[in-house]
Amino acid sequence: MAFPSAAFAATAIAMTENPKSGRPGQRPGQKPFKKKKTGGKPAPRRPGLPPEGPVLLYGLHTVEAAFANADRKRLKLFATENAQNRLVERGVTIDVPVETMMPRALDRMVTKDAVHQGMILEADPLPAYGAEHLKGARLVLALDQVTDPHNVGAILRSAVALDADAVVTTERHAPEEGPVLAKSASGALDMIKHVRVKNMARFVAEMKEKGFGCIALDSDGPASLEETAFTDKTVLVLGSEGKGVRHGVREACGLLARLDMPGEIRSLNVSNAAVLSLYVARMKMGL
């Protein structure tokens, strides 16, 4: 086996660290490294990061709903030719620049196992909706610190299906808008007001002042939801599966109700509980 010459070894050492520059990988006599300047528009936000810049929305129903939402500022569509044709066939007006890409290139833009269906839309997050956007609402679903984006996405979808007027979450301890939430909602994120409030108990108190009846779902509620009296304007409050609705929020509601299950399993996943609660509320309110 041939060993490297002394000259080669000396050059290798110099390349590893140049005493004058103190930078690794620099040859003797080479000009000092200059940090490459970066500029221009920041790259689209990767899935799962907070909405401080553009979001990447993917999947047919999610992208279609984003194009139909006048409140959604759309920036650019990355899609295969087949996906573009599919959107046009469904009556979608593509009003942003389009970059035609192969499926594998789209795969690299999203997280592993994300089902993009050949299309990814770069868009700004939705405007910050507040309680002032609930004028005219009759049925509102509030989620007290429900943190799983899959659950919240499924609840948004059910809320649209059962014609609720809005879904309310807290600003903290709730999922931010992003690809996972949007995909789980299957377009519902752009079809219903997602209101975010700083303090859920204060929000409930304000809604009661506006004539809403506020009902907190609690396993220890004195009556079932079917037996509970409803007003013509209602806020249903559901809590996380572990803690349930927090004490201060229950106190603000003043009215507790339970969901009675006839089977051996007495409790439901929060997204399923939301569906059943909305259905009962609609029946009781005559909606």
Rank of each mutant, 00 (worst) to 15 (best):
T170C: 12
T170Q: 13
T170I: 09
T170W: 09
R172M: 14
H173A: 13
A174H: 07
A174W: 08
P175R: 08
E177Q: 15
E177W: 07
P179R: 14
A182H: 13
A182I: 13
K183C: 10
S184Y: 05
S184E: 03
S186E: 12
G187Q: 06
G187M: 08
A188W: 05
L189I: 13
D190F: 13
D190K: 08
D190G: 08
K193V: 12
K193Q: 10
H194T: 06
V195K: 04
R196I: 04
V197Q: 08
V197M: 10
V197I: 14
K198V: 08
K198H: 09
K198W: 06
N199Q: 11
N199F: 10
N199C: 11
M200C: 02
A201R: 00
R202N: 10
R202L: 12
F203S: 01
A205C: 10
M207W: 05
E209G: 04
E209R: 14
E209Q: 15
G211W: 10
G211F: 10
C214S: 12
I215H: 05
I215V: 14
A216T: 01
L217V: 04
S219F: 09
S219N: 04
D220K: 15
D220F: 14
G221I: 05
L225T: 02
L225H: 02
E226D: 12
E226T: 13
E226K: 13
E227V: 03
E227R: 11
E227L: 04
T228M: 03
A229Q: 13
A229H: 11
A229I: 12
A229W: 06
T231Y: 00
T231V: 01
D232H: 11
T234E: 12
V235L: 13
V237T: 03
V237E: 02
V237D: 01
G239D: 03
G239Y: 06
S240W: 02
S240A: 14
E241D: 06
E241K: 05
G242Q: 15
K243Q: 14
G244F: 07
V245Q: 01
V245L: 02
V245W: 01
R246Q: 14
H247V: 11
G248N: 14
G248H: 11
V249M: 03
V249C: 01
R250G: 00
R250F: 00
R250H: 00
E251G: 14
A252W: 10
A252G: 04
C253R: 06
C253K: 07
C253H: 08
G254R: 09
L255P: 00
L255R: 11
L256S: 05
L256A: 06
L256I: 10
A257D: 03
A257C: 04
R258K: 15
L259G: 00
L259I: 14
D260N: 06
D260T: 10
D260L: 08
D260I: 11
M261E: 03
M261W: 01
E264R: 09
R266N: 12
R266H: 13
R266K: 15
S267A: 13
L268S: 00
N269F: 06
N269P: 02
N269G: 02
V270Q: 00
V270L: 01
S271P: 01
S271V: 01
S271L: 00
A273V: 01
A273D: 02
V275P: 01
V275W: 06
V275I: 14
L276F: 05
L278E: 03
L278F: 03
L278I: 05
L278W: 02
Y279H: 15
V280W: 12
A281P: 03
R282I: 08
M283I: 15
K284P: 04
